[in-house]
Amino acid sequence: MNSRTEHAPIIQMKDIEKHFGAVIALAGVSLEVYPGECHCLLGDNGAGKSTFIKTMSGVHKPTKGEIIFEGKPMNFDNPRDAMDAGIATVHQHLAMIPLMSVSRNFFMGNEPTKKIAGVPFFDREFADRITMEQMRKMGINLRGPDQAVGTLSGGERQTVAISRAVYFGAKVLILDEPTSALGVRQTSNVLATVDKVRKQGVAVVFITHNVRHALAVGDRFTVLNRGQTLGTAQRGQITPDELQDMMAGGQELAQLDDALGGTV
């Protein structure tokens, strides 16, 4: 942890405010992400998580505040700008096409070409080889690069999407609730992927409202509530209960928790 803080943060969000008409979605949120860390962004529904990451990935422009990416102030006009700079978002709605093969999906929009007699052809051999390599790195056993994405489980699809983003040069990887619709084993696969990606030096912003998922891979935790930061905590400095309380805004949940026998 200490070694990490010696580096400069790859992206800094300073006092980000976002207003939609009369609604203040974000009221001054600050956050720093370092290369190679997994920064968990927690918060209940409506806390402003989505708005915040959309600001980070160029979908929304902040009303106030500053985004500093690799030491320079950044102004993304659209998601494409952010993507080109190296900020990739893996959405819950994945950019994957079930009927197409894994390798065709992996290189969709970025197809490698090979010139034969001056005509650029899709270099399938290269695409297949890279896809197999990358998938093996992430621990997914494909029958072959021509296996359809539709045959993969939800967790495996997330992993394909994540490794695709990393392969195409993502420096900051934003994962929008990657585990929310997954079963136990698939979730652990995705969390393992996040861990592998982090070790490659990619900064991961992991959005979730599941404290256990966050604690499994997170280095630091920022909790959002009603458009504000409730602080950032380091790994080991906070207990799951404290995190849970912060997310829900305290009291009510404590009572509910008692009633439910600690199962929330």
Binding site: E125, D128, M132, R136, N141, L142, R143, G144, P145, D146
Partner: peptide, 12 residues
């Protein structure tokens, strides 16, 4: 299927 795929013993 590429050669690497055929050589991987984990693939059914």
């Amino acid at each position: 299927m590429s050669d690497t795929a055929n050589n991987d013993e984990r693939i059914k």
